[in-house]
């Protein structure tokens, strides 16, 4: 029999609190690299200037330990829980929410969560988190906090396309989503695209594609080529950084797929801004 490893819930709370603060103040290295590359390829001087301001802001945030953006988001938390882990002293959900409350208080982060979508009373501590749990092999617990701002989240879209819509339908939907979003999601944007699965699954695929910030090209050459093609089509639209014109409308397009039904072709675009943040730790 495998031995069971015990992780105290307080350790989870401590970890989530740290990750909230780190994610909101330190832009992931990959996003910084993409911004630097965009600065080199952007031909339009006003757009170059905006890209420079954006890069400077990330440096100011990290060195002065202040939030990169005032919208420190809703805390989306991914927990990969090894099935040989026992969480002692409380539930995972309570531990995560306590971590979010503490991180947003201690980090002087903005509290942007309301209890009820229609009656709209701020909860005052940025809880509850949006928690996605996956059971994995082993005895580790991996936590990722991805604070999501709603300027970009609001510009996300989902469509239940049909098999006849096919590849062309997916491409048209992605481009239309970017065009409709225009300047609103703080371009340069990052796109997470989910294709396949069911209605609820495709939205999560899109979110994961955005949060995981996969290193390197898509492992499947078919989708690697599609990501490249979408990115270059988007960067011909002319929206540009801040929406005032330029090549750099998007920094990256990441696709995640899942098997789907013979009758369906769900597609979802989760819109990310240039402050697409996350922080990860494994306990």
């Amino acid at each position: 029999m495998e031995s069971i490893r015990t992780i105290p819930s307080a350790a989870i709370t401590d970890c989530v609190a740290r990750l909230c603060i780190r994610a909101c103040t330190v832009l992931p290295g990959q996003v910084v690299t993409l911004l630097e590359a965009a600065g080199r390829t952007e031909p339009y001087p006003p757009a170059q200037n905006t890209l420079r301001l954006i890069r400077q802001n990330a440096v100011v945030a990290a060195t002065k330990n202040v939030p990169i953006c005032q919208d420190t988001g809703m805390a989306v938390v991914f927990a990969e829980v090894g099935q040989d882990v026992h969480i002692a002293g409380g539930t995972l959900e309570d531990a995560v929410n306590a971590g979010v409350a503490r991180g947003y208080a201690e980090g002087w982060l903005r509290k942007s969560v309301i209890r009820d979508p229609l009656r709209r009373q701020n909860t005052g501590d940025n809880t509850p988190a949006v928690l996605h749990v996956r059971l994995t092999a082993g005895d580790h617990l991996k936590l990722t906090v991805s604070p999501k701002g709603f300027g970009s989240e609001n510009m996300s879209r989902l469509a239940m396309l049909t098999p006849a819509d096919g590849l062309e339908g997916v491409k048209a939907f992605v481009l239309e989503t970017v065009r409709l979003a225009g300047a609103n999601p703080c371009p340069p944007i990052m796109l997470g695209v989910g294709i396949g699965g069911t209605f609820e699954q495709v939205a999560l695929l899109a979110k994961e594609a955005l949060v995981e910030l996969r290193e390197g090209p898509h492992p499947d050459p078919y989708y690697a080529a599609l990501e490249e093609e979408l990115l270059s089509s988007i960067n011909r639209l002319g929206i540009g950084p801040q929406g005032f014109g330029g090549r750099t409308t998007a920094l990256s397009v990441r696709i995640k797929t899942a098997p789907t039904h013979i009758a369906g072709l769900p597609v979802a675009v989760n819109m990310g801004c240039h402050v697409t943040r996350h922080a990860t730790e494994t306990l």
């Binding site: 954006i54 990330a58 002065k64 953006c69 300027g151 300047a183 703080c186």
Partner: peptide, 30 residues
């Protein structure tokens, strides 16, 4: 603010002699 405005807002800006400015989004530390 940031981002585009509706035609109604544009018309109201003209009618009332008001202007709409934008700051760079996502540069809150600076």
């Amino acid at each position: 603010g940031k981002g585009q405005r509706s035609e109604e807002v544009k018309a109201a800006l003209m009618q009332n002699g008001a202007a709409y400015f934008v700051a760079v989004g996502g540069c809150a530390a600076s």
